[in-house]
Design a protein around this nucleic acid. Structure first.
Length: 426
DNA sequence: TCTGGGGTCCTAGGACCC
DNA sequence: TCTGGGGTCCTAGGACCC
């Protein structure tokens, strides 16, 4: 049996933890650059504030009801996320915890007899809440997809289930599937949901679960779809993932706080994003051989991404590396090729690919010993920056003025990672 | 005026190889 | 006029997730 533990309205809960006066009041948290709404407290949901909606459009509603607004504070959320996950690892052992996202983790509960699962699930909820102050919902079922179904319902019918739902027999599974609409299934997005309704008159999860694996393969994206069908039928087909599996692509992209025209500022931004990407690379003990950069000018579609970007270029390095200085240089050089004077730019991004383990980097006889020195330098930078959950140490190419930085007009304090921003009890 | 960021998996088709 | 079989690697594009 598998469980999914999901933090309720995670970003909002993090903010409220240090502002208890907001308990029971509507709260929202904004995306980078204060663009969209990415987390809403239950009270905000009830007021009809839309998820992922642009902030400026929700402003009238937010103002009218006195909703409290926060910019994203990733220092705080990252630290609290770590505490939640660590709690689960202490309870169940590292091996049985798969961190799925900043606010969700799957657990393998295979070692527990079925008649204890309800108790175990309740224990998870209590312990995480007591140790971290973050409220969670727990769904338990034979497969990941069904656990997700259970989790959703445990939240939807809070009164009845109090945030814990265990699907340990056929009857309960059928009832749960019946209450789940097609588009609410994990792995069925908008496109598939429309297709299923329109062409096949399938509206709920129970109906879908009765279709064949072959149906999934043909209509829901090949093997992904057939796996989904199996999972719905209670046959585990999505294994617990080994978290040590490394990412094959690492990207850092950002909108600028406001459009930028001068090339030096764009280079600073690209150097900064490269540093961040390199840090992610080193954290997973990898090195990259390909550096790609794109910049998006003001007139272009804001959804423009790497592939769609008009102005993207990449270079293949002579040898894979994870050293910030060795990655910044080619990245900044790409800006020279992409930049057109007279344009205003609103966004830039850096992507590292061609990723290999850093102990398998192809040796080059002529590399000097200074590399060992650089290695130690990188380690030191990473340690200092990690301790602060921020890039307090950076390369000069990243700039000091940083007039391109994103807007965060409603940011809260970094209560758990900065001495001078500690929570005060008067 | 103002709409985020970072990923994953899969398929099809073309180029190329022996 | 006729023209095999089996592979790999890469890219583009489509779908999904939080």
């Amino acid at each position: 049996m598998k469980a999914i533990v999901d933090c309720n309205n995670f970003y909002c809960s993090c903010e409220r933890l240090f502002k208890p006066s907001l308990e029971g009041k509507p709260v929202v948290v904004l995306s980078n650059n204060d663009g969209c709404i990415v987390s809403r407290s239950n009270e905000a949901k009830q007021l009809g504030v839309e998820m992922a909606g642009p902030y400026f459009m929700a402003k009238p509603l937010i103002g009218k009801h006195g909703v409290t607004v926060f910019s994203s504070n990733y220092n705080l959320y990252g630290d609290l996320s770590w505490r939640v996950m660590e709690t689960l690892r202490v309870m169940f052992g590292k091996k049985n915890v798969e961190v799925y996202s900043v606010d969700e983790a799957f657990l393998d509960l295979g070692i527990f007899p079925e008649n204890e699962l309800q108790e175990v699930a309740e224990k998870i909820k209590q312990t995480v809440e007591r140790w971290t102050g973050i409220k969670v919902s727990v769904g338990v079922a034979p497969t990941k997809v069904l656990a997700k179904v259970a989790n959703r319902l445990s939240k939807k019918y809070t009164q009845q289930y109090e945030g814990v739902m265990v699907l340990d027999n056929e009857e309960k599974i059928i009832a749960a599937l019946k209450q789940t609409q097609i588009g609410e299934i994990w792995g069925v997005g908008y496109q598939y949901a429309e297709k299923l309704k329109e062409h096949f008159c399938i509206y709920d999860a129970l109906q879908l679960s009765r279709m064949s694996e072959e149906f999934g393969r043909t209509h829901l994206g090949g093997v992904t779809g057939s796996r989904l069908l199996r999972e719905l039928k209670g046959i585990p087909s999505k294994d617990m993932e080994d978290e040590l599996v490394n990412k094959r692509m690492i990207a850092t992209t950002r909108m600028f706080g406001s459009p930028v025209g001068d090339i030096d500022s764009i280079k600073e931004a690209v150097a900064t994003y490269t540093s961040r990407a390199a840090e992610k690379l080193r954290r997973q003990h990898s090195a990259a051989k390909v550096v790609s950069v794109f910049i998006v000018s003001k007139g272009e579609d804001h959804n423009t991404n790497f592939r769609g970007a008009m102005h993207g270029k990449s270079v293949t390095l002579p040898a894979a590396t994870s050293f910030t200085n060795e990655l910044i240089k080619p990245a900044v050089a790409l800006v020279d090729k992409l930049y057109e004077p007279g344009h205003l730019y609103k966004k830039a991004g850096v992507m590292l690919s061609g990723i290999v383990p850093d102990d398998s980097i192809q040796g080059n006889l002529f590399l000097s010993e200074t590399r060992n020195c650089d290695r130690r330098l990188m380690d030191m930078i990473d340690n200092v920056n990690f301790s602060q959950r921020d890039d307090v140490l950076k390369f000069a190419a990243s700039g000091t003025e940083r007039n391109w930085k994103m807007q965060q007009n409603h940011i809260s304090d970094r209560y758990t990672t900065r001495w001078n921003e500690l929570f005060e009890v008067c």
